[in-house]
């Protein structure tokens, strides 16, 4: 489908902060010791070395700052997950400064940081995980970019907004069995399935058909090569109905429905979903599953 990328970051990179690290303070201590050494021995070459290192520290401020300046979140996309898991976000980090940016660390509070280099690749994609608690849209906080490169004496950091969201499905819970006669009106359809064992009819064999299904007995009678067709007759379309358990609370019901939707999808069965305000007719396939899960995730939430 043609659509313009939605998650464009409108924000240019924010304010950059910079402060010495613990290693930086250690370096200051080293400078003080060197200065004492120089003063006491009246040695101009140790003075020179001390000043060189002090000047290097000043230069390092600029380098650490410039290592972060110009880096921005080009775009972000969120991948769906189940409540309680970590939602994966694909963040694309890029710069158009023409410089190398090394060891940029991305993190959210509470998430495991990831460190990347913008050297050979620019922009570069990283996957950052954000723990989730509730179903619905998960909108991440601003991502923190920080770096101590090149000398580790200073740490510069900034925050950039993430223009993306991830869909959080309800956590699947296996708790109930599915009501088998959950209000069905339609006719059972005939579905050709390889795994079924009800013999249906014979068909002329065509290249490409599975040789396992060749009806050898028919062939032996000299009636040509035929393949056996199997079919399973499915009596009922399965309906996942929100109103099946009136006594349970909403979130619990959604979790049960989620579990069953996943299970039925795995078994490649045909199922529909009935929510108080929406109905998804029975179908199968990835697309259907996705639609159903999304409906479950967003049920009762203000659609933004």
């Amino acid at each position: 489908m043609i659509s313009w990328p939605a998650g464009l970051s409108l924000q240019r990179e924010g304010k950059i902060y910079i402060l010495p690290t613990a290693a930086g303070w250690g370096f200051v201590l080293l400078l003080v010791l060197l200065l004492l050494l120089s003063i006491n021995f009246e040695n101009n070459l140790t003075f020179a070395l001390t000043f060189l290192l002090a000047a290097l520290m000043v230069v390092a401020i600029l380098y650490t700052y410039s290592n972060l300046a110009g880096v921005r979140l080009v775009r972000a996309t969120g991948q769906p997950c189940f409540a309680g898991e970590a939602a994966g976000f694909t963040l694309q980090l890029g710069s158009d400064t023409g410089r190398e940016h090394q060891q940029i660390q991305l993190s959210w509070p509470g998430s495991l940081p990831i460190t990347v280099d913008l050297v050979e690749q620019n922009p570069v994609q990283v996957e950052l995980a954000l723990p989730t608690q509730r179903r619905g849209w998960c909108t991440p906080p601003r991502v923190k970019l920080q770096t101590v490169f090149p000398l580790g004496l200073f740490r510069s950091w900034c925050y950039q907004p993430v223009m993306a969201r991830a869909l959080v499905y309800p956590a699947p819970l296996n708790g109930v069995s599915l009501p088998s006669t959950a209000g069905n009106t339609g006719q059972g359809g005939l579905v050709v399935q390889s795994g079924s064992d009800d013999f249906s009819d014979l068909k002329r064999f065509q290249p490409g058909m599975s040789p396992q299904h060749i009806a050898w007995k028919v062939y032996a009678r000299g009636q040509g090569l035929h393949a056996k067709q199997y079919a399973a007759r499915q009596d009922l379309d399965i309906w996942l109905d929100f109103s099946a358990w009136p006594e349970a609370e909403t979130e619990l019901r959604l979790s049960w429905l989620c579990y069953w939707a996943l299970k039925l999808s795995r078994e490649d069965r045909c199922y529909g979903l009935r929510l108080p305000d929406q109905t998804w007719p029975p179908a199968r396939g990835d697309y259907h599953r996705q639609q159903v899960l999304q409906a479950l995730a967003l049920y009762g939430q203000v659609n933004s």
Binding site: F47, F51, L52, A54, A55, V59, A60, Y63, L151
Partner: peptide, 16 residues
């Protein structure tokens, strides 16, 4: 990084 630190070092050396 050391190259721009050299002139700064000279200035400090002169004045300290």
């Amino acid at each position: 990084m050391l190259l721009p630190a050299l002139p700064l070092m000279l200035v400090l050396f002169f004045l300290f």
